[in-house]
């Protein structure tokens, strides 16, 4: 598990990391899903293609997470894991592996949106890490 959940007075956030930027995006998506849904029993049964682009690293991260959130809250999908690939400057395409949400994996929190508040994306010795806060 390449993430940890953080707290903020009114809301919730996470720190996620990975050896490459794309791995960090996958870990961040996993963090978001685990905050929103009880993922204990979710199977990686079906592939859901998810793509995002931005103007820089930060907006790519926020837009990517917003795409994932749309699948979780709008399309009612729960994910087990993500594969992410770069496909151009500030552009990624990925596959979220999961299944339609059911009573077996109930919602934990309704995430309203992904914010830029105290957002950080850094390159460190171990690879990449980001901090993101969510409005709930």
């Amino acid at each position: 598990m390449n993430f940890e959940v953080l707290e903020h007075t009114a809301d919730i956030g996470f720190r996620a990391w990975g050896p490459a930027f794309e791995n960090m995006l996958a870990a961040a998506a996993q963090a978001l899903v685990s905050i929103a849904v009880e993922i204990g029993t979710v199977r990686d049964a079906e592939p859901y293609p998810i793509a995002a682009k931005g103007e820089d690293r930060e907006s790519l991260l926020v837009n990517w997470l917003n795409e994932v959130l749309y699948y979780v809250d709008g399309r009612q999908v729960a994910f087990r894991r993500f594969d992410v690939k770069s496909c151009g400057e500030w552009q990624v395409s990925g596959i979220g592996w999961g299944e339609p949400r059911s009573e077996a994996h109930p919602a934990k929190l309704i995430v309203k949106g992904v914010t830029y508040h105290q957002l950080s994306v850094t390159n460190c010795a171990e690879g990449w890490q980001c901090t993101v806060f969510l409005d709930i």
Binding site: E55, N63, N66, G74, K112, G113, Y116
Partner: peptide
Amino acid sequence: HQVCTDYLAEMGAAMKRHDIAVPDR
């Protein structure tokens, strides 16, 4: 929630066009 998300995503580029800078994205 989605309306806010959609327009925030659009506004980054629009701010550059309108030459607006803010201390917090």
